[in-house]
Design a protein around this nucleic acid. Structure first.
Lengths: 109, 109
DNA sequence: CTAATCAATTAGTATATACTAATACTTCTT
DNA sequence: AAGAAGTATTAGTATATACTAATTGATTAG
């Protein structure tokens, strides 16, 4: 059973543009090394490693060491906390759609 | 036409637990004042006002001043940037959130 | 008019964080 | 074995941010 990861952690981790770009490259590449992620990133290898550590702790990526290289890939259910949080509020909006609409109509005729 | 809001801004704004709690209360209450949001929040009115300012700038809430009170409510398509981002980077999420995205976009304030 | 109420803003502070540079650790190559 | 290559970690720094206290501005009540 996978450990439940705080939605705050997921949001905070993805909020940084550099780190999110790393995540997006990981998602797009299926498997990718730290060196590949560093090249063209605009930051140092150190920064990339630190971002990968954050992403790993947020449950968004997993690593596969192979020799002196480490391959990273996206964790399939890494976005589940975010999906759950969003679907919760979308359901709420769907339920309140009529009320919201009439409310807005009253405010802004 | 509504201005496009950076996904980083939305994520960063929702990442803070206190501010996200404010947003959730706004969503749940349809309309709510600053004083009501302050009560039971655990922080000062100043902090609440500052969080509301952030939420407003992130496109997540809108305000309706009435006398000396200011009523806040959730901006219906505030989460669209987040839904778009999620659907863009994974076919899995695109399928799962296609409905959410169109729902949010159809609700026009 | 005066005082109270509601919200926003400002200034100041403490903590978090994103980064680089330097270094350590491991694995591969020769 | 020695060095190179790939990655992680540490220390230090600069910036961002979440908060309180105090104040300001505006509206309502007595």
């Amino acid at each position: 059973m996978t450990e439940a990861i705080d939605i705050s952690t997921v949001l905070r981790t993805l909020a940084d543009p550099t780190r999110r770009a790393v995540f997006e490259r990981v998602v797009g590449a299926a498997e990718i090394t730290v060196a590949e992620l560093t090249s063209g990133s605009g930051v140092t290898q150190s920064a990339i490693s630190q971002h990968l550590k954050s992403l790993k702790q947020a449950g968004l990526v997993i690593e596969r060491p192979e020799g002196r290289k480490v391959y990273y890939r996206a964790r399939p259910d890494g976005l589940v906390p975010l999906a759950d949080w969003m679907s919760h509020y979308s359901a709420f909006w769907r339920d309140r759609f009529a009320d919201l609409r009439s409310l807005l109509k009253d405010i802004d005729p």
